[in-house]
Amino acid sequence: MDPRSEVLLRQPEYFGGDLLLAGLPADDLLGHLPAAHGWSWHAGEQAALTARFAGRSHFGVTPPEGAFERALLFLPKSRELADYLLDSLAARLAGRELFLVGEKRGGIERASKRLADYGTPRKLDSARHCQLWQVTVERAPDTPDLHGLAQRYELSLADGPLSVVSLPGVFSHGRLDRGTALLLEHLDGLPSGPLLDFGCGAGVLGAVLKRHYPDNPVTLLDVDAFAVASSSLTLSANGLDAEVIAGDGIDAAPSGLAAILSNPPFHQGVHTDYQATEHLLRQAVRHLAPGGELRLVANSFLKYPPLIEQHLGPCRTLAEGDGFRIYRAARR
């Protein structure tokens, strides 16, 4: 059981009835709260919740349409995303209770101060290195406009400017990260056929690929619903057509790919996690056509080449700079 869920269950008197759990972990919490339902934006956690509690969790970037008596937010890592989520919930809870739970190392004490915008917050519990807060919403905000919260910027590329649309919570929100910038310089010579942008974020790499290889089908894949929405907005802003899908890692990708390109993530919440990237390196061969390429950027300190060579083929370093390396390998 997630420690944040354990803290909730120490205070069962607050969590009966029609409760919305926003950003809930994929543990047994819904089993302990039979009248509650969830809202998730993580495709992997949503799949696990659906498998165990069919019909009780909503997936997307906005709350479910139905009414709920109270809501609890599991604090996300991103401050901008937390602000959007709190406002989205508080807008639906005039005169009712909103709860916030999170780890101390995840910034719960700072985030709890945001509850004062809605009423008088109070701490209900502190345990398992977590805190649980509550506020009765006396000042409900307007429903936030998610697209209005997007940050937009433009990249100057050799074939013209590219508009990027980034929603709250998306990796490298509102700016081009250094790793992707380096990878964009090494996209030439890809084989003909379907291309995959794995961990697409705001869709920069996928949009550049589609413009650079207009005859190649391009798929953009991310585990996060906000990233999927951002990528769709970026493609639309540039008049590009590509498939964007939400899925839990490389297993959700199509097969027969000519190339997989990625600036893969290695963080999940406040904890470091290399699992998704390591799984990509182990399973890429199952999704690549014979001769298909894996091309990715990674921090120089990450020891990915041995894993790539074990599961795919000889690994070559195409470039190095600013603390990053570009690796290339082809399916034997």
Rank of each mutant, 00 (worst) to 15 (best):
Leu155Cys: 07
Asn299Trp: 12
Ala127Leu: 00
Ala207Leu: 13
His147Val: 15
Ser231Val: 13
Arg122Gly: 05
Gly292Cys: 13
Leu73Gln: 06
Leu302Trp: 09
Gly292Pro: 06
Val61Asn: 07
Val7Tyr: 01
Trp41Pro: 11
Leu132Asp: 02
Tyr213Lys: 07
Gly44Ala: 08
Phe226Asp: 00
Leu288Phe: 06
Tyr14His: 15
His186Asp: 08
Ala242His: 04
Leu257Val: 11
Ala90Asp: 00
Glu69Arg: 12
Gly239Arg: 03
Ala51Val: 05
Asp251Phe: 14
Leu190Lys: 03
Leu280Thr: 11
Ser163Ala: 15
Ser166Glu: 01
Leu72Thr: 08
His287Gly: 12
His287Pro: 09
His287Asp: 12
Asp145Ile: 08
Asp177Leu: 03
His267Ser: 09
Asp27Val: 14
Gly17Lys: 02
Gly323Met: 12
Ser57Met: 10
Glu309Lys: 04
Gly174Met: 01
Gly23Asp: 04
Glu185Trp: 03
Ala330Gly: 10
Ser236Cys: 12
Leu302Asn: 03
Val101Gly: 05
His147Gln: 15
Arg316Met: 09
Gln310Pro: 04
Gly256Tyr: 04
Ala242Thr: 01
Asp177Gln: 02
Arg316Thr: 15
Tyr118Ile: 02
Leu183Glu: 04
Arg332Ser: 13
Gly55Pro: 08
His58Met: 12
Ser232Phe: 03
Leu20Glu: 08
Val61Met: 05
Pro161Val: 00
Gly31Lys: 03
Ser236Pro: 09
Ile250Ala: 06
Asp197Met: 11
Met1Gly: 13
Gln283Glu: 14
Asp222Phe: 03
Gly291Ser: 13
Lys113Trp: 10
Ser156Cys: 13
Pro290Glu: 01
Val208Arg: 01
Leu184Glu: 06
Tyr84Glu: 00
Gln131Ala: 14
Leu195Phe: 14
Pro290Gln: 00
Leu75Pro: 01
Ser232Tyr: 06
Pro141Gly: 02
Asp215Trp: 08
His32Arg: 07
Val61Asp: 02
Gly148Phe: 06
Ala207Trp: 14
His267Asp: 03
Thr62Ser: 14
Leu288His: 05
Leu288Arg: 01
Glu154His: 12
Pro76Trp: 10
Phe171Tyr: 10
Phe15His: 05
Ala22Thr: 14
His279Phe: 06
Ser172Leu: 00
Gly95Tyr: 11
Ala227Gly: 05
Pro305Gln: 09
Val208Pro: 08
Leu240Trp: 12
Leu220Trp: 07
Leu233Pro: 02
Asn238Leu: 04
Ala246His: 01
Trp39Glu: 03
Leu155Tyr: 07
Arg105Glu: 13
Val101Arg: 02
Gln11Asn: 15
Pro306Leu: 09
Phe99Val: 08
Gly95Glu: 08
Tyr84Pro: 04
Gly256Lys: 11
Ala71Cys: 08
Leu176Asp: 01
Pro12Glu: 10
Glu103Asn: 08
Ala158Arg: 01
Leu235Pro: 01
Thr277Ala: 08
Val164Phe: 09
Leu261Cys: 06
Gly119Met: 12
Leu302Gly: 09
Val61Gln: 08
His147Phe: 14
Gln151Gly: 09
His37Cys: 13
Gln131Thr: 08
Leu98Arg: 00
Pro194Gln: 04
Pro214Cys: 09
Phe15Trp: 09
Tyr274Pro: 05
Arg96Asp: 07
Ala289Asp: 04
Lys104Val: 14
Arg79Trp: 15
Asp83Asn: 15
Asp241Trp: 10
Lys303Thr: 13
His271Phe: 15
Asp197Glu: 10
Leu294Met: 10
